[in-house]
Design a protein around this nucleic acid. Structure first.
Lengths: 208, 208
DNA sequence: AGGATACGGAACTGTTCCGTATCGTAAGGC
DNA sequence: GCCTTACGATACGGAACAGTTCCGTATCCT
């Protein structure tokens, strides 16, 4: 994908423009967002992230960035909401397998970078209530919704206890996965089979 | 404690100096560390934290800081290791009560600030392997040791399953508490009674 | 072909911060 | 009482960066 040299990749970048002139490069959009995520995952905190560094990493002029986003905050919001990627949809075989699939999906290489980006985003979330809301609504809540659906179906099907505290259980599944993925919190817990072990441990107290 | 105006508070600040001249002010040490924690908990990321801001917040000249620490990193390490405070010691009544006590201790007002400071420290931990080790060894591991002791005693006493995965259980207890305290991850989970509910849910699958 | 717009790159200005130096003053040891 | 050191404050040169403007070139539409 990187080696493409044909020009036709660059095309209608933003909204379908109709005016004359050279259209914006979709490649530039991509490179800029990619550069932001790259710098964040390397440990650059959000407020220490400089537009100059983004431009240099993306191989792009600063003007090209400012032509698209009015300021750093807008760029950050775009980058973050882009990062989330597609929302996974579990197969619906069994509660156990669905949860394992969802949790294992949090530990891919791509999600490991996602975790580091999130870690470097936290100061911004602490500082700005607006960013916190954007992040919750745009990234966290949609994914939590999927897992919540799995648990709800488990309760209805009788696979899980009827009086299960669904919200707390969500936290018990995602909390350990997050701190382990993001902060390498407990080095004594191996990555191998982590999702299975965690799900089985949680379900041991959640089954009907 | 703040209202003290007597001069005798200033005293042997650092190691017992013997040379002549004015001794260093212990008050200044305290104010500087306090200022660092204050700025971090306000959402200043570690690398965006400026010595000038620390000096201004502490009401101290920059030179007074540079006289004590050679650079920002050393100051940060001192501030972080100071922040941890005393290590709690559970009463040893029952596993359940001990765990509730430990987890509830993670949700005091003081620990809430601690959580915000930690969040703003994360980019630094991602960037610097050394800082990560210092933080793990100086802050996380001692506290995890306490909780590990509680679980181990529970296994020995037969209160918990003999084949319990202690390390994973530690993660299941601290993970949810951390993300909730630090990131307000799931607003649908109430703070009230959080520790009790979490411990009971985990123990449901951990009891013998 | 011609006009319009985007491109990467470079220059420029004003701001912030670092780390050091230097004030006049304060506080303790000899 | 003198010497030494720390104090808060301020100033400094240098570096990094934000945000803007211009250049010459590239690319697409009509």
């Amino acid at each position: 994908m990187e080696a493409m040299t044909t020009a036709s990749v660059d095309a209608v970048a933003d909204q379908d423009r109709k005016g004359p002139g050279r259209p914006r490069s979709a490649r530039a959009d991509e490179a800029i967002i990619e550069a932001v995520l790259e710098l964040l995952s390397a440990g650059q905190s959000a407020d220490a992230l400089s537009i100059e560094a983004v431009a240099a990493t993306a191989g792009v002029g600063k003007a090209t960035i400012y032509r698209r986003w009015p300021n750093k905050e807008a760029l950050l919001i775009d980058a973050v909401t882009t990062m989330k990627g597609p929302i996974p949809e579990p197969a619906g075989v069994s509660v156990r397998d669905d949860l394992v699939t969802l949790l294992a999906g949090m530990r891919t290489k791509r999600m490991h970078r996602y975790g580091k980006v999130t870690a470097c985003l936290l100061p911004e979330l602490v500082k700005s209530e607006e960013m916190h809301k954007v992040y919750q609504a745009g990234v966290v809540e949609p994914r939590r919704d999927v897992m919540r659906g799995v648990l709800r179906r488990g309760v209805e099907s009788g696979e899980l206890r009827a009086d299960l505290d669904v919200e707390l259980t969500l936290l018990m599944l995602s909390g350990p996965a997050i701190v382990q993925n993001m902060l390498r919190w407990n080095p004594a817990v191996p990555d191998e089979g982590f999702a299975e072990h965690l799900v089985d441990a949680v379900l041991r107290g959640a089954r009907a």
